[in-house]
């Protein structure tokens, strides 16, 4: 286990370098080496989805990816979604619609739902429930997660509409 490997990856837009054991999981790289503890680990069999992050825009479970596999890639974690000054619509949706209780699964669930909304900007309740297949939430019974995702979809649509109006009228900065 002594042969270490240097990797370089972009995490939330910042280039990070690390010297790691080849067997290190991406989840542990993020949490233990890069101190990004927003990504959580809830199981060992890649069922719960608490560790979900984005790698080059794809939704992946970071407990099932080796850190070396993320070498040279762009990783987005919950810390990269938005801050309190400017929340990502999915964060707003979860907050306003009470989409979380203990909040442990939430980072993974939010990222997984960003993946859904990229593919399907206006999902039905059934489509959202199907898309939640890869995550487990023990607190909410999922109902307000569905509301949160619907709300986020609406916010994104409104945001896009505003952008389009601004562009077509030439207003704004």
């Amino acid at each position: 286990m002594t042969c270490k490997k240097n990797i370089s990856l972009s995490v939330n837009g910042v280039t990070r370098q690390a010297e790691i054991e080849p067997r290190l999981l991406l989840a542990h790289l993020l949490r233990d080496e890069l101190n990004l503890t927003g990504t959580h680990i809830g199981c060992d069999t890649s069922q719960c989805g608490a560790c979900t992050v984005m790698v080059d825009g794809d939704v992946v479970k970071s407990c099932t990816v080796l850190a070396v596999q993320a070498d040279g890639k762009e990783v987005t974690t919950v810390e990269g979604l938005g801050d309190m000054e400017q929340l990502h619509p999915i964060q707003q949706g979860f907050w306003e619609k009470h989409g979380l209780q203990c909040g442990f699964c939430t980072p993974g669930v939010m990222i997984s739902m960003i993946g859904l909304l990229k593919e399907n900007p206006n999902p039905t309740e059934e489509e959202i429930r199907d898309a939640l297949e890869g995550v487990i939430c023990r607190c909410t019974g999922y109902q307000f997660i569905v509301s949160a995702v619907q709300h986020a979809a609406q916010l994104i649509a409104e945001g896009n509409a505003v952008k389009e109006t601004t562009m077509s009228t030439g207003e704004g900065r």
Binding site: T37, E79, L81, W95, G103, F104
Partner: peptide
Amino acid sequence: KRKEDPKLITGNGNFTD
């Protein structure tokens, strides 16, 4: 809306691990 949510939705919770 919950007061506890801002830290949890931004990845700033402080769980034991």
